[in-house]
């Protein structure tokens, strides 16, 4: 972890060459991609050999992907207009719903984790809500909001908020009492106790909850757009399906997949950075 060395001459602490580290990391990263590549090659072969209309080879999907989603001018980062309109629509729904879930989930979770009385009053109810398979709320959401963006936002929020809340409460209730005692003896004000001690101490669990909720949020973003909307990525799949453009369907699927992958990778980055302080076992090697 401590990849610092002390120069014998200047006595200064310096980091080993960053570029070299990055290069080595990339190399080992690429080395681990072969199995993924193999899976994609098998898909390609299956697509070609079977000649199935429904499962086209990956090369044709990617070609179509280029036609539909790329090909914009450089000022648009070579992404097509359709890309910008649909992706921003879907992602802004996701960001609003998930963002709200994060704020509300962490806020309520901290209260639940700190107050025994409130936990006993509302803990069972929260567990009950968490146990509802949240897609079942979709017809209701459409009833309340109609076919509008707020419906998607509401569903994403309602689906992801419970995991965040439960994990936060769990983490906050489990903060090492030594840290609390230590903070008390330093006579820190209440806001410091919560923002700089309790929440960071519970961060590993809170972030675990956020990651699960990220996946749930994406699932709900897509299903709510498949079920009833007039724009967005899911809607593109529906349109392609109803006009039998199977390649378009697949390339929209690939785009959604890529978005999921990018969001998860970004989240992983942030998570590792925030949790640097946590002493972790050799699992990082995985």
């Amino acid at each position: 972890m401590t990849s610092r060395t002390t120069s014998r001459i200047t006595g200064a602490t310096m980091r080993p060459n960053r570029a070299a580290i990055a290069l080595r990391r990339t190399a080992s990263g690429v080395g681990n991609l072969w199995l993924l590549a193999l899976v994609l090659v098998l898909w390609e072969i299956y697509g070609r050999v079977s000649g199935s209309l429904f499962v086209p080879p990956i090369s044709r999907i990617l070609q179509n992907f280029g036609d539909v989603w790329l090909g914009g001018p450089a000022s648009h980062l070579f992404l097509s207009d359709l890309f910008w309109s649909e992706v921003t629509t879907s992602l802004s729904r996701f960001a609003r719903g998930w963002g709200l879930a994060v704020v509300v989930g962490i806020g309520c979770g901290v209260v639940l984790g700190r107050s025994r009385v409130i936990a006993q009053m509302y803990g069972p109810v929260v567990r009950f809500f968490a146990a509802i398979p949240n897609t079942v709320l979709l017809p209701i959401a459409v009833q309340i909001f109609g076919v509008a963006s707020n419906m998607n936002v509401f569903l994403i929020f309602l689906g992801s908020v419970w995991v965040v809340m439960i994990n936060t409460a769990d983490g906050v209730a489990g903060v090492d009492p030594m840290w609390l005692r230590s903070a008390r003896s330093l006579r820190v004000p209440r806001w410091v106790l919560y923002l700089r001690v309790i929440v960071p101490a519970a961060a590993p669990q809170i972030l675990a909850g956020l990651r699960v909720s990220l996946g749930i949020g994406l699932i709900l973003m897509v299903i709510s757009e498949l079920y009833a909307t007039t724009e967005g990525l899911g809607f593109q799949i529906v349109v392609a399906q109803s006009s039998f453009r199977y390649l378009d369907m697949w390339s929209a699927f690939v785009l959604i997949g890529l978005i999921g992958i990018v969001l998860n990778l970004a989240f992983g980055r942030i998570e590792t950075r925030l949790l640097r302080w946590q002493r972790r076992s050799g699992l990082d090697a995985l």
């Binding site: 030594m178 840290w179 005692r181 230590s182 101490a201």
Partner: peptide, 11 residues
Amino acid sequence: FQDYSRSLFPW
């Protein structure tokens, strides 16, 4: 405190 690893705030 006795246990520095648990009384300092590692974050």
